[in-house]
């Protein structure tokens, strides 16, 4: 830390509490704002073209389509907060999706037990990532790239061709096609996040993302925290894999591949800092919904769907650049 010129004390002039809340959550606020704007734009286009407001069907399908990404993004957020990155997301989703297609059968209890085991399998994948990153002191990006390949291979081994079938009851429970009940799971996830944020573990995750050496000097067990973060991430991707299986009512060992990159996009749009220590899973959930809304908007704008990724990519860059700019303005150049 270079010495800087001593500044005079700023006296008792304090910014109001609200100013702090805004300044410190600017990423989240921007994510919510972009999401709101995209919903408004979408609704407006919908009204113009369909002469009615988007109804239960539109909301339900949007929510159900976004659930896997939202869950994956929460997991990615926790890893990114530790100043890591997880590219194995797609592999975990592939594998758990395939496992679900094979083993989810029978009665309620059987399905419940299988679901828990599948989530644990995701946790084991995350644990392995965490152990290698932590003990090997290797760069997360290459470690998780390697485990991505392994998990993709395992997934195809489990389910060589798309297939299997998910019992209708399971689908109805996770992704009710008649009402956006999946929002309850999201609310649960957000609640879980708020608990995490207020737990010792949450503080440790943020601390090592802020400054690992300082955190260690403050008594944070950096190694353990990292391992747990990757493990939680893996479990959340597994839940995403279950949702994906439920909404597709079947399994596909490659269906998760896209989620590696889209989860990073969602995290970035959600205002989570890729260099760790700053961000919120609620923002990442918003980020996931923004990506879905953009697809919806492009559809209603009659944009040739072939150009979809062009607009998504452009939007991502613009959002990141302007997000950084606005963040700097709000913080007053500090």
């Amino acid at each position: 830390m270079p010495p800087e010129a001593a500044e005079p004390p700023r006296g008792r002039t304090r910014r109001p509490v609200l100013a702090h809340v805004v300044g410190q959550n600017i990423g989240l606020i921007l994510a919510v704002a972009i999401l709101s704007a995209s919903i408004v734009i979408f609704a407006a286009m919908f009204v113009v073209q369909q002469d009615r407001l988007p109804g239960s069907f539109e909301i339900t399908s949007t929510v159900n389509n976004t659930m896997p990404l939202a869950l994956a993004a929460i997991g990615q957020t926790i890893v990114v907060l530790t100043r890591g990155i997880d590219l194995s997301v797609g592999g975990v989703i592939d594998l758990t999706n395939a496992l679900a297609a094979i083993f989810l059968t029978g009665g309620v209890w059987h399905m419940a037990v299988v679901s828990v085991l599948i989530v644990l399998a995701g946790g084991v994948a995350g644990l392995i990532n965490g152990l290698i990153v932590g003990f090997g002191r290797l760069q997360p990006i290459v470690v998780t790239l390697a485990t991505l390949s392994i998990l993709q291979g395992l997934a195809i081994r489990v389910l060589p061709t798309p297939g299997g079938s998910i019992p209708a009851g399971y689908t109805a429970f996770l992704v009710n096609t008649n009402a956006p009940t999946a929002l309850c799971f999201l609310a649960l996830a957000a609640l879980g996040w708020m608990g995490f944020r207020r737990s010792r573990l949450g503080v440790d995750v943020f601390a090592i993302g802020n400054d690992e050496q300082a955190a260690i000097a403050l008594g944070v067990k950096a190694l353990r925290t990292k391992i747990i973060a990757y493990t939680i991430g893996g479990m959340l991707y597994a839940v995403a894999g279950l949702f994906l299986a439920a909404s597709a009512t079947g399994g596909d060992a490659t269906t998760g591949d896209d989620y590696t990159l889209t989860s990073i996009v969602a995290v970035v749009l959600g205002g989570v800092n890729l260099f760790g220590g700053r961000g919120s899973a609620v923002g990442a959930i918003c980020g996931a919904f923004i990506t879905t809304m953009i697809v919806n908007i492009l559809f209603f704008a009659h944009i040739n769907p072939l150009y979809q990724s062009f607009y998504e990519g452009l939007f991502l860059v613009i959002a990141v650049v302007f997000g950084a700019l606005i963040g700097r303005l709000v913080r007053g150049g500090r």
């Binding site: 830390m1 943020f206 601390a207 802020n210 400054d211 300082a214 000097a217 403050l218 220590g277 700053r278």
Partner: peptide, 12 residues
């Protein structure tokens, strides 16, 4: 109190 400060910059 170490010479190099150990505050976590993005925490309150």
């Amino acid at each position: 109190v170490f010479q190099e400060l150990t505050l976590l910059p993005w925490m309150s």
